[in-house]
Write a protein that binds this DNA or RNA. Sequence first.
DNA 1: ACCCTTACGCTACGGGTCGTAGCGTATTAC
DNA 2: GTAATACGCTACGACCCGTAGCGTAAGGGT
Lengths: 216, 216
Amino acid sequence: MASPPENRPRGAGRPRSAAADRAILSATRSALVELGWSALTMSAVASRAQVARTTLYRRWPGKSELVVDAVADLFDERLELPDRGSLAADIEWVVLRFAALLEQPETKTGLMAVLAEATRDEALRARIRSAIVGRQKALVLRGRARAQDRGELAPDPPGDAGARQAARTVDLIFDVVAGSVIHRALVSSEPVDEDWARDFAALVTGGLTGAGPRTG
Amino acid sequence: MASPPENRPRGAGRPRSAAADRAILSATRSALVELGWSALTMSAVASRAQVARTTLYRRWPGKSELVVDAVADLFDERLELPDRGSLAADIEWVVLRFAALLEQPETKTGLMAVLAEATRDEALRARIRSAIVGRQKALVLRGRARAQDRGELAPDPPGDAGARQAARTVDLIFDVVAGSVIHRALVSSEPVDEDWARDFAALVTGGLTGAGPRTG
DNA sequence: ACCCTTACGCTACGGGTCGTAGCGTATTAC
DNA sequence: GTAATACGCTACGACCCGTAGCGTAAGGGT
């Protein structure tokens, strides 16, 4: 669960209101949906959260950090990867799951806004990777290992070079899955539905030349 | 070439200064790199362009529209697709070309900022598609047709259903290529170099199960 | 129970941006 | 030449920013 940085000296004085934390983060999300990034102001968040404007500045340095924490909460759902029987089916499941997350207007607006702001800020980008997007990578690792167990994929070659090669492949798959879904949903503005997920999984597993997207 | 919308009644009065147009768009790009989206102000652009602030408002309604036009120029380079001999090589070429575009800090910051703002604005999103991202789709169409001529890909099935299926495939490929490159470069913050392009092309053409990313 | 420490709400401040309006001047088409 | 438009400049009210100072509320430690 994302929270404001706890730099305060512990063990003395009045503790910060957890209710205020929740109200602020929730207000930030709803305000982000209604107003968008550029129109979102600290004043708007404060008034929605029934909180003084100064209270916001006591916890977050500025808009970017506040929004990152607010959005990170949305990616906190349990990420599971049930065994769907095949690599392609597992991929479809991940795609649809990720798409469902992006369907929420809060996530959509919040993620893109934060990514845009992070273009000039490597620290912020690292925070996004660890707190938001990076969690999805664990799913790729698990799905790949499972496919190797099934015999659908070749096992990792031994040795140091093999491990490095495997890591590169995982990174590649991760960028392809996450990037394609985001692009489809947020740039092309087309639905990431079961049909698309099936085509996508077929492409990733079989490629264009092999058992291409069209199976029927 | 992107220009401010020409809604003015033609044929009378003093025409708008084309030099000012160029100066404003150029100033917007450089300011965007140095300041980032949120710190970018109309005042900053005006002073850099040696132009009165009111001149900006005479041409663009606001920051978003101005930045879109400024960034669109960067995507205006001639988009060519020389025949590299194979589908995989053609894909590698497109990936590296697109990545080179995204390497420029102006393009990077500008594109993400505009995409973020477009999350809440379908009109802006459509403008981005037609003016910026959508142009790349022509490359996908050409590359696919060429691969079909070579016999690497099956020709489109005849009839209406076949055409629709082909269109879906093109859309899919486009989202996968553009999305993956953007995600790799802007989210993962890893270089889109020749090694990555080769792995990516191998994945898209052969798939995970087939002639996987590792060919050597 | 008491004090100490901190959070909170409120008000106020200087500085900046926004988007618009009005003016006089410059520059072009007809 | 005349009409029409662009341009630079100035000014305006409204808003937001980030910080400071105040009195008050609410816990923790002994």
